[in-house]
Design a protein around this nucleic acid. Structure first.
Length: 411
RNA sequence: GGAGAGGUACCCGAGUGGCCAAAGGGAACAGACUGUAAAUCUGUCGGCAUAGCCUUCGGAGGUUCGAAUCCUCCCCUCUCCA
């Protein structure tokens, strides 16, 4: 079998920012099977689009026949990674972390197989929580130079604002993870976001010191949008991979609303389309770029939510923004009882209730500014009420601004 | 433990007795222009059936006709010293 070296694929798709040693990494992937790990901290009950880089990177690794390991950082999260953070993160309880870890693990399995054969998911709590402090310091701690750690770029901000001893240890534990995985799974490559560079290097150094073996690290660029914004934040907060937190429709909309300048990068990162096809899509200009965005949105949604949901989301999106009547079932909906609207309900109240606006006041403002629509008709009067006559086939389409839709169903 | 500085809305940050629901900036939202993009311009930006009322300037009390602003106690953060 003459397969392409996965490092080449990763590089071509833009996943490589820093590497410990390009040739060594290339050689590592020449082997029949290399083992690669990426860590995920269960700080929330779902991963978000910011975590996609690592998931996609590991998926490429598995597709190339190598072994991906997702390390669930339920041990390290007890501490909290200070890298790139300006202040101490809120401490999470152990139960909280455990619950998050379970959910995140099942999410990861959407991107690559973790069947303990073609891929693994391990919990670092398994080896971190039982450590004996003094033994650990003697065996591992002696390999770390405080002087050196303090010069790390990731800690620079924290040297100004303060860094607790707790967080200072994070790097050591992450380095220990790498050592453990080298020993148990012969894992020789760690990947992570560029803010993880210091932690990754600490790991490669530790493995060299303890085992006398060379292991490698790769970082991918930290994702920002062309606007300089952190990736994956919207008005509603993070864009989650969990369909319950961010519906497939909203997920689809997130991608289709991306900046023109991001489209070709994102196609390479967040779809499995061949680079040749991405090159074709990148040639679109002006309004035609929407075509490329539609491909991006569909492919990205398909990977996270499956093809059926992606098709539904696409149909709903086309229906809302185009003129064709299609399947709108994936546009968010709320049920409302007949009794409730019998006497008429203020539309401003309805908008607030279904979450299109945060408060009734905001809904009133929206109407005043001409941004509220009901079944594609602009609502002119703040005092407008909703009644049964407005329902067509027992449903109403509400719209806030140009892009946010919500269906109201008569129950 | 000692000395000093500070904690203001989503974030940064002004305000040191009434003119304060609190300047300014950023973010965000809406409108215009567009292509479900960007940029630009305009408006909005605590809650409430809204020319009025209610809640908010770390927390709890107090002084006052009136407190983000003054006093007391407490909590937290930072800097220097130990």
């Amino acid at each position: 079998m003459n397969r392409q070296n996965v490092y080449k694929i990763l590089k071509e798709r833009g996943f490589v920012k820093q590497v410990t040693d390009e040739d060594a990494v290339f050689d590592a992937f020449k082997k029949k099977q290399a083992t690669v790990y990426v860590g995920y901290d269960p700080t929330a009950s779902s991963l978000h689009v910011g975590n996609l880089m690592g998931l996609m990177a590991l998926a490429h690794v598995q597709r190339a026949g190598h072994l991906p390991i997702a390390v669930i950082g339920d041990g390290t999260t007890m501490i909290g990674d200070p890298s790139g953070k300006t202040e101490l993160r809120k401490m999470l309880s152990r139960e909280n972390i455990a619950a998050n870890a379970t959910k995140i693990k099942s999410q990861i399995s959407c991107y690559f197989r973790i069947d303990n054969k073609a891929g693994f998911a391990v919990h670092n709590a398994d080896w971190l929580l039982s450590l004996n402090h003094v033994d650990f310091l003697r065996e591992i701690g002696r390999h770390f130079s405080v002087n050196r750690m303090l010069t790390a770029e990731a800690y620079k901000i924290r040297m100004e604002t303060g860094l607790s001893f707790l967080e200072f240890n994070y790097q050591i534990l992450q380095a220990f993870d790498f050592l453990k995985l080298y020993q148990s799974h012969h894992c020789t490559v760690q990947m992570g976001g560029d803010d993880q560079w210091g932690n990754i290097i600490a790991g490669t150094d530790l493995v060299r010191r303890v085992e006398g073996a060379r292991v490698e690290g790769i970082t991918w660029p930290l994702l920002t949008t062309a606007n300089g914004q952190k990736m994956g934040k919207t008005a509603k907060g993070a864009v989650w991979l969990d369909g319950g937190l961010t519906s497939p429709y909203e997920y689809y909309q997130f991608w289709i609303n991306c900046d023109d300048r991001d489209v070709s990068r994102f196609l390479a990162y967040f779809t499995f389309l061949p680079m040749k096809q991405i090159g074709e899509l990148s040639k679109y200009e002006g309004a035609d770029i929407r075509e490329a965005k539609a491909v991006l949105a569909f492919e990205a949604t398909k990977i996270t939510h499956g093809e059926a949901e992606a098709l539904k989301a696409r149909a709903a999106s086309q229906s809302a923004f185009g003129d064709s009547e299609q399947d709108i079932s994936s546009i968010p909906a709320t049920h409302i009882s007949i009794e409730k609207i019998k006497d008429g309900v203020y539309l401003s109240d309805v908008f607030a209730e279904v979450g299109l606006t945060k408060s009734k006041g905001e809904a009133r403002r929206l109407i005043k500014q001409g941004g509220a629509y009901i079944n594609q008709d602009k609502i002119e009067d703040i005092e407008s009420k909703l009644d049964a006559k407005d329902f067509v086939d027992n449903s109403i389409m509400l719209r806030a601004g140009k892009k946010r839709y919500h269906r109201l169903l008569l129950a």
